[in-house]
Amino acid sequence: MPIKSVNDLFVHEISDTYNAEKQMTRSLPKLARAATDPELSQAFEDHLQETRTQVERIEQIAEACGFKIKRIKCDGMEGLVEETMSLVDLIGKGPILDAALIGSAQKAEHYEIAGYTSLCLLAQKLGYAEAIPLLKASLEEEQETDRRLGLLAEAAQIEEAVS
């Protein structure tokens, strides 16, 4: 469907984000199983629950704003997930894989942060007041997950991977 208005762009971008979050709900359990560090595994499990809530928020936004989520594939997230899974196949379980998982997860978080930031701006421009707090809640969760991953990257269990 062609994008001819800012509203069309918003619907497209939120549909893309919806698909990205759905992809994350399928990949996070695999990352949790691949991680060696129990804190990292728990971070992935915790984020899985948040991601499920983010999917529900997008559904709430679509209903409140009166549009249907389009069935599109988020190519960006698909690429990030594929890249991560290839690292899981290339690296044996242990601190090096944990370091790779953190880096890959942070790439995905930064991608999502950019998407939610853009959606907040579009919702504001379009006057979708009911969407803004829901989008900001998801944005804050993505930022917190990125911060948590950064702290795990600095942890001693990960540092041994570089020595």
Rank of each mutant, 00 (worst) to 15 (best):
I61T: 01
A62R: 09
E63S: 08
E63V: 07
A64T: 03
C65Q: 02
G66M: 03
G66Q: 05
G66A: 03
G66N: 03
K68A: 12
I69G: 09
K70I: 10
K70R: 14
R71K: 15
K73I: 11
K73G: 01
K73L: 12
C74A: 11
C74N: 09
D75I: 14
G76P: 07
G76R: 02
E78W: 04
G79V: 08
L80W: 12
L80T: 13
V81P: 12
V81N: 05
V81D: 06
E82D: 15
E82L: 15
E82Q: 15
E83S: 07
E83K: 12
E83A: 10
E83C: 03
E83W: 09
E83F: 09
T84V: 11
T84G: 12
M85V: 03
S86F: 13
L87Y: 13
D89Q: 15
L90Y: 12
I91Q: 06
I91V: 13
I91P: 04
I91K: 08
G92I: 00
G92H: 00
G94V: 00
G94L: 00
P95H: 08
P95C: 08
I96M: 15
L97Y: 04
L97W: 03
D98M: 01
A99F: 11
A100W: 09
I102G: 07
G103Y: 02
S104W: 14
S104H: 15
Q106Y: 10
Q106W: 10
Q106S: 07
Q106R: 15
H110S: 03
